[in-house]
Amino acid sequence: MPILTAANLTKIYGSQRGVQHEALHQFHLAVGKGEFIGIMGPSGSGKTTLLNLLSTIDSPTSGTVTIDQTTVTNLSRNKLAAFRRKETGFIFQDYNLLETLTIGENIMLPLTLNKWKVNEMKERLQLVTEQLGIAELVDKRIFEVSGGQLQRAAIARAIIHEPTVIYADEPTGNLDSKASRQVMEALQFLHQEKKTTTIMVTHDPFAASFCGRVIFIKDGKLFNEIHKGDNRQRFFQDILNVQSILGGNTDDFQTVRF
């Protein structure tokens, strides 16, 4: 029983009369409960578009998305927002943290929106920040901490309300290899501990190798799909292979990380 299903998703950008661009073409996807899935593909292939549709941030031109038996593509914008804040968590390449708040306040934001009690919020904050190793940063401001720490704060915010699905769009895109590893290990830990369904868009084969399944898109259509066996190293190699067939550039030094 998949927790998330996308059927016939098509997204066409541009106005009726202006230049139109079909970023996604009749896309199908089913994500099982507790799955950790990666989405890869060349730049401009429609990954972010797909993720935005799956996560209800954007609405498709046609097709449906169903999450936990709710057909979210039928909901009004206000209902969607309410749905998002309860059922989903987000991690963005640009962190999407608010400058006006401290790290701790940023992490607690979803809880304040969901009208939690102050004590419970604080307890939860303590718990999550300790899990992610950023407990001592909660009173710092955004510009006072590093990119890796910011991304872990963003992860903390994404999971603090225990969402049904976590969406991540290139969470390691702005980070160096060490920070990437920390972030991915944090995600993996959460996935193993909480069994939260996670959908991640990435360019980085190393990050993708943490997933259980990777799907490849090209020109808005499914290109290929590979599963992790029991060997992560082989999975990583498979990803690299598909990438080279796709024509995406692969850097040799990416293998150095192992």
């Binding site: 941030i57 914008r77 206000n78 927002a81 309410a82 749905f83 998002r84 804040r85 309860k86 989903t88 987000f90 963005f92 999407n96 943290l97 608010l98 006006t100 934001l109 979803p110 929106l113 915010r157």
Partner: peptide
């Protein structure tokens, strides 16, 4: 920019 950030994590337009 500020409100787009908030929209993405589920702020309703009413709020």
């Amino acid at each position: 920019k500020h409100y787009y950030s908030l929209y993405r994590i589920g702020l309703t337009s009413k709020e």
